[in-house]
Design a protein around this nucleic acid. Structure first.
Length: 344
DNA sequence: CACGCGTGGAA
DNA sequence: TTTCCAAGCGT
């Protein structure tokens, strides 16, 4: 594929680009803060899922300085439901570093951006290209799919990554590099899709080796993946005077830094009632199932009234649990606990 | 470099 | 119902 093919793709993008809230309109350069925020939210996340979060964040925190000044707990709660919570912790660290050490301006080079928490190779390249017009090789899962099809790459992921990167590098132009990157991603998201790609509408169909072979859906080849293990555990709903006991989870690990109900251990098999925060007449209130990336979890819920509330503990008003910013698995438990409370 | 790390929509 | 997967990063 020659450079004029990238021009061809950008031409397609000029009339087919998706309208997205973080994209600048017309000639103006997009706001680096909004580009950064969108790129973090979009990591492993669909546009449809990220969009309302982006709208809420930018309305509440219109600048990196305002975000840097916000409380951790407010930002974590606003992120609740978006998943991969390390992104939110790194988002906070990055905003404060930019505000405190870079005078509120994002670095305009890949190497500068790479020094910031939560910004890896893809995101640094994307921000450099989209926000600052730099020539950068932007390779995400969309680009890997498009490139693997264009050149019918027979090597499987993840081993093919260096080869796909080199191929992407070879077709990346200097001019309008940010638009080229977004064009590749829009192409992957709308036409060159994982299943049933719309080759008939593709601006690069006449240059696509996979299309020529007749099985574009076969690419990218992927290594076989392992089975997802199943774990179980217990969760505890302790109630007093219209409040329920929550705890802030440790800053690292599963759901790190988020609020949740006390739980015992999560393991292949867990005894009923294991890990209770205190001795009580626990009432069994059913169970919830939840599937994470690398394991499936069943949590049994135990409910009991508490004799008192200790200072230093986090007791949340039950009728305002929807404002607590609970990760989805705990939001499911909250629904069961609320049902138990109403029944009692 | 392999693994840990969420979620919800589509087929 | 199950499987796949979506603008990856940190360790």
């Amino acid at each position: 594929m020659s450079v004029d093919a990238s021009v061809q793709l950008i031409h397609w993008y000029d009339s087919n680009a998706r309208v997205l809230p973080w994209r600048a309109r017309g000639e103006e350069r997009p706001d680096p803060y909004r580009v950064w925020l969108s790129e973090i939210m979009l990591q492993q996340t669909t546009v449809a899922h990220a969009r309302p979060y982006f709208e809420a964040f930018t309305r509440r925190w219109p600048s990196v300085e305002s975000l840097a000044a916000a409380d951790d707990s407010e930002i974590m709660a606003a992120w609740a439901g978006l998943g991969y919570y390390a992104r939110a912790r790194n988002l906070i660290g990055c905003a404060r570093k930019v505000a405190d050490e870079h005078d509120g301006r994002f670095p305009d080079s890949e190497t500068g951006l790479l020094k910031l928490p939560g910004i890896g190779r893809y995101t640094a390249a994307a921000i450099a290209a989209i926000a600052f017009g730099r020539r950068a090789v932007v390779v995400d899962a969309n680009v890997e799919r498009v490139v693997s099809r264009l050149f019918a790459v027979e090597e499987a992921l993840p081993g093919a990554r260096p080869r796909l990167y080199a191929l992407a590098d070879a077709i990346t132009p200097v001019e309008r590099c940010g638009d080229f990157a977004q064009a590749m991603m829009d192409l992957g998201a709308t036409l060159c899709t994982p299943r049933a790609p719309s080759c008939d509408a593709c601006p690069l169909a006449d240059r696509c080796d996979a299309r020529r072979e007749g099985e574009p859906e076969r690419y990218p080849l992927k290594a076989a993946k392992s089975v997802r293990p199943i774990r179980q555990g217990n969760a505890y709903w302790l109630e007093h005077d219209g409040h329920v006991l929550l705890e802030r989870r440790p800053p690292r690990g599963m759901l790190g830094g988020m609020l949740g109900f006390p739980t015992g251990s999560w393991a292949k098999t867990v005894e009923p009632g294991e890990g209770a925060p205190l001795a009580a007449d626990w009432d069994e209130a059913g169970a919830v199932d939840h599937v994470f990336t690398h394991f499936a979890l069943t949590l049994r819920l135990y409910c009991a009234p508490a004799a008192s509330r200790d200072a230093g503990e986090l007791w949340w008003p039950i009728d305002r649990l929807d404002e607590a910013g609970l990760p989805t698995v705990f939001a499911k438990l909250a629904a069961r606990g609320t049902a138990w409370q109403r029944a009692a």
